[in-house]
Design a protein around this nucleic acid. Structure first.
Lengths: 224, 224
DNA sequence: ACATGAATGGAACGCTGCTCCAATACTATG
DNA sequence: CATAGTATTGGAGCAGCGTTCCATTCATGT
């Protein structure tokens, strides 16, 4: 944006890409994906929409950049020295928790697979699989499976979060779904009905990790 | 909608929930998710928006019902007699192919986990896992992992499809992404760069199945 | 023939993302 | 210090969206 040689600060309340993105994150976290409108953002920053569009291409760029920021933070926080298997679990859990805190990130992760956010996850998971000794031929499929699983849970969690009033307790939501499951036609959905009670008091964080372990076990089996 | 006892057909061009949903599917398949607007739908049916809203609650119901229809068809097509393992693979592939044919289904699958579409998949996969002999205690986690993986791939495929002009060849798209991957900073993304060439000419359908097999292997390991 | 309610189609409302542009804030120069 | 020139601002306005409202039409039961 700035041309060449003037990083002398302008007015202290000056707009900037960073301030705009920070404000967007705040609005998203407070009110969910639907709350982020250009007008709301402009009001929050006490400016007009034109000023925003001078710093940012469009709303999608806003969401994408915000997502990249958050995911990059999560991935980089994983200790470099950790054993590969633990590192993979840590990255996966980090993504899980990040989406728990910012559900809109989950929805965003699905767009544009060449954006830093997804790339970061692939790189982090893939390099650890390599370190684990997964043979070259199986690496691509293995990394793909793990990342798709992580993104699948991410998307589902984000969707769930979108359905409840922000701030609702998770157990209330689970109990609600479990209730609907339990009320299903036993002839058509015997399995789902049977899972209803487990759904009610399961720990989705633990279940998510169990899935990661399952896939890691499958990868280990394949190379044996 | 109709009250009690008159199934005598009205005018032959009469609107109906079914005709509206069929038209919506046609528009979605032709032009992607963004092409389905109430105005476009009304134009396609040569009517007004008010008439549509008399038959259908809102646009979301339209998308949800259309998705339920397509997924139910896929799941029910899987032969009941097939061996459990093959049945699971068939359901997974069916969902994959359905989303390949109707990318908007992928995006829709993430909303409202108690809707028939998702339920159908959970039931179909879960009951087969049970038949496979997966112990009670591991059933929930196993089914959850498989379904989340399937949905993860679904979502990613749908997102990819949204990015290319409808009808673009898949290999062109893959080559494009592979090019971007190959051009990444080798210091930051060594793994992703290494995968670029494999991405270019991989078969995502086969890779998807490989992921299913990986998870099934992991499930089998866990019970041993 | 009339009355009734189902069904229709289109105008209108409030909202969205985004563009455009006159006005302003700031910097570099003479 | 004055002036010219560019970077930045804020808000009016546009086209399009989902949805609601309602006067009108159609098909039927009496």
């Amino acid at each position: 944006m700035a041309k060449k040689t003037h990083r002398i600060e302008r007015r202290s309340d000056a707009l900037s890409r960073e301030r705009i993105i920070a404000a967007a994150i705040e609005i998203l976290d407070r009110g969910g994906e639907g709350a982020l409108t250009v007008r709301a953002l402009a009001a929050h920053l006490a400016t007009g929409s034109g000023a925003i569009y001078w710093h940012v291409a469009d709303k999608n760029e806003l969401l994408a950049t915000a997502t990249d920021d958050i995911i990059a933070r999560v991935v980089s926080e994983v200790a470099g020295g950790a054993r590969p298997r633990e590192a993979i679990r840590a990255v996966a859990l980090g993504v899980f928790d990040a989406i728990d805190a910012h559900p809109w990130v989950g929805a965003q992760l699905f767009r544009e697979p060449w954006r830093p956010a997804t790339l970061e996850i692939v790189e982090s998971v893939g390099s650890r699989l390599k370190a684990l000794g997964v043979p070259e031929a199986a690496l691509f499929d293995s990394a793909s499976a793990l990342v798709h699983y992580i993104l699948g849970v991410a998307g589902q969690n984000a969707a769930n979060a979108r359905l409840v009033a922000p701030g609702t307790d998770r157990s209330v939501f689970l109990a609600g779904v479990a209730g609907k499951w339990a009320a299903l036609d036993p002839a058509k959905y015997p399995f789902v009905r049977q899972m209803a009670t487990q759904l009610r008091d399961h720990d989705d964080r633990a279940q998510f990790l169990a899935g990661v372990d399952l896939i890691l076990a499958g990868i280990a089996t394949a190379q044996a």
